[in-house]
Structure formats: C-alpha cells, structure tokens
C-alpha cells in the first residue's frame, strides 16, 4: 500500500492572502478526492482572477475554514517562517485484533503539502523599492509593486492548481475504492497545520510516519 505525496509549489503570500489561497487549494484538492455525489460549487477568489471548485459540503467548508483560522493564528505567532499545511487522506482500518488493543489504524494513502512563505509586512517591501522609481511618489511605486507581486502570486497559485490537476490525473491507482458511504467527501481526511509548539510539527509528522508505517511518505 503506498502513500502518494504531492509537494505543492511554494507560494509567497502576504498575511491577508493566506485565507483565500488556502481555501482555494484545499477545496480543490478535496474536490478531486470527493468521490461521493457532489454538487460542485464554483467560487471566485476575491483577490485573484481564479475560480476554484468546492464540493458544496457545509461541513467540509467549516472544517477547512477552522483549520485555516488556526493556521493564521499560528502564523501570527510565528512570523517570517515558511510553513506547511498538510492535507492527508486515509483509510481507517481496524488494527489486527490483537489481544491487547482493538484500536483503529489510519492508513494514509495520499498527502498534499501546501508550502507557504508568509511574507513580511508589505511596508518592508515598499521601502526597498525606493530606488526603482525616481520621481514617482513612494505610495505609487509601492502599489505598483503590490500589483506585480499579486500578479506573481496569482500565477503561482494557478500553477499550483494545475499541479494538483496533473497529480490527480496521473495518480489514480492508489485511490481506494469508493466506499459505499453517504456524503460528499467519501474518504476520511485530515488537515494538519504546524502545531503551536513550533518544533512539534516535524515531530508530529515523524510520529505519524512511524505509526502508519509509510516509508514512502516523504519521498
């Protein structure tokens, strides 16, 4: 049983863009993995000229938003850090009914790593750019820069979405059979954000790897 891992291209975002960017990516991934009856919902991003697709499942939406909020507050506490959000899909299997435990086990079959680089306060940027324009007042050049930066992010986000599409297309074999469950999102999933104790994030992952025994996880 293999676990496919997709490392998405890193995105340079500003603080206020985190929410939209993450929503867009997370929903897109989940939509591609929601094999239950889906009534898709198109959502236009406000900051970017991008439309992504949601499953139209309120619960999912709520869960994603919750996680994003957690992530944002984590980012606030840990500025200037590259960070990862991981979306994993797994199957729940009963562990072998051994005589001392009857725990269930998560078998991860796919993990997506969303890599974000939350940029500094934009003010820092504008000061740097002073040399570029001579006459133009700083406000204007700053806004120009913002536009350029936004465009770049939009392009990268677009790339990331295509990356998702390609991945999803290429890797189909590892996806478990569609469970006969009601509901839109057919596979259990989890969204992992860096935990509050900074270093524990990596530990978490390692722990999980050990637990689930997926050597290919980070390949």
């Amino acid at each position: 049983m293999n676990c496919e891992v997709c490392q998405l291209k890193e995105l340079e975002v500003e603080h206020f863009e985190i929410r939209e960017v993450l929503r867009c990516i997370l929903h897109t991934i989940v939509f591609n993995r929601a094999l239950g009856l889906v009534r898709p919902k198109d959502v236009d991003l406000e900051l970017f000229e991008i439309t992504y697709v949601q499953c139209g499942d309120l619960e999912l939406e709520k869960k994603i938003d919750e996680k994003i909020e957690q992530f944002i507050s984590w980012v606030e506490k840990h500025p200037n850090k590259k960070s990862q959000v991981c979306l994993s899909f797994f199957e729940v299997k009963n562990k072998q009914p051994s005589w001392f435990t009857n725990k269930t086990e998560r078998l991860y079959w796919e993990q997506w790593y969303i890599n974000l680089n939350v940029a500094q306060n934009p003010k820092a940027h504008s000061t740097k750019s002073h040399h570029s324009k001579v006459v133009v007042d700083p406000g204007e050049s700053a806004s120009e820069e913002r536009v350029a930066r936004r465009a770049a992010l939009e392009a990268t986000l677009h790339e990331v979405l295509f990356q998702i599409v390609k991945f999803v297309n290429e890797k189909k074999d590892h996806v478990p059979p569609i469970p006969n469950l009601e509901g839109v999102v057919s596979f259990p999933y989890e969204i992992t954000i860096p935990s509050s104790s900074d270093s524990a994030f990596g530990m978490d992952m390692i722990k999980r790897m050990l637990q689930t025994g997926h050597p290919t996880m980070l390949s």
Binding site: L35, K172, V175
Partner: peptide, 14 residues
C-alpha cells in the same frame, strides 16, 4: 472515470 471528470471539472475552470 470519476477522478478524471473531477479533474476535468476543475481544469475547465482554470
């Protein structure tokens, strides 16, 4: 097929 159509749905919008 479902998987392909899902990604088609997303792609069409991209």
């Amino acid at each position: 097929s479902i998987l392909l159509l899902r990604s088609l749905y997303v792609t069409v919008r991209l």
